[in-house]
Design a protein around this nucleic acid. Sequence first.
DNA 1: CGGTATCCTTGTGGATACTG
DNA 2: CAGTATCCACAAGGATACCG
Lengths: 126, 126
Amino acid sequence: MLQGNTDVSVQAGPGEACTISEVVNRVASKWAIGVLVAVAPGPIRFTELEREMKGISRRMLTLTLRNLERDGLLHREVYPTVPPKVEYTLTPMAARLHQHLRGLVDWAADHRTDVAAARLLFDAQH
Amino acid sequence: MLQGNTDVSVQAGPGEACTISEVVNRVASKWAIGVLVAVAPGPIRFTELEREMKGISRRMLTLTLRNLERDGLLHREVYPTVPPKVEYTLTPMAARLHQHLRGLVDWAADHRTDVAAARLLFDAQH
DNA sequence: CGGTATCCTTGTGGATACTG
DNA sequence: CAGTATCCACAAGGATACCG
């Protein structure tokens, strides 16, 4: 039997309660915010995302995209051309979410030097 | 020597660049959002937090609080009474962050049934 | 009360080879 | 191009005993 390691990672069960903190954690998971922000401006392809998301592995990009699609935050449009082409866009629900994420990211941009400074000070004293 | 497992977990080095995504990830880490939201209403003690944050372990609560304090988001006030008393409050910078976090949490509250529905649909088709 | 210290399990994520 | 599949490393996190 496949003892434990089905390796689907971040997946949550379908029947479970789907609590607020579950949803928040999903949306705030390591790469999700970056992906949502990157998709927001308009349709974007897999490889473009891969480039834009410096440092992400193929596997994690796929996983993140699947989870967001599964949760109804991303729409995935497949063009059956050759070579294949796939475009991702935000759903309306995700577009509303995006406002808040931008707020978060902007806050981080505004305060990252303060955070760095606080960290230095803290480390000096402890 | 202490080979590798210093077990400081989520810690990031002090000298590092402190990029936006680092800051976002720190703030969006598993328990941080919940803690910040719980602290926001006013001074709160360790044990109160432990109760409020259903499911968190002592270790993770401590770690999360230390990291947030280190990053200058939480103020830690120690009253040297016996038994000891420690209160946590948001710093001004964290108070501004809190606005955005509330937005996120409220969004999650508004849409968790949509997310659950999307998930069910997706799972049915795949 | 407010934490540390220790041990152990699990999840998360990277690298990479392969495929329709 | 847009993914899967596989294997593996290690960081994140839980449980719990202990301490000032």
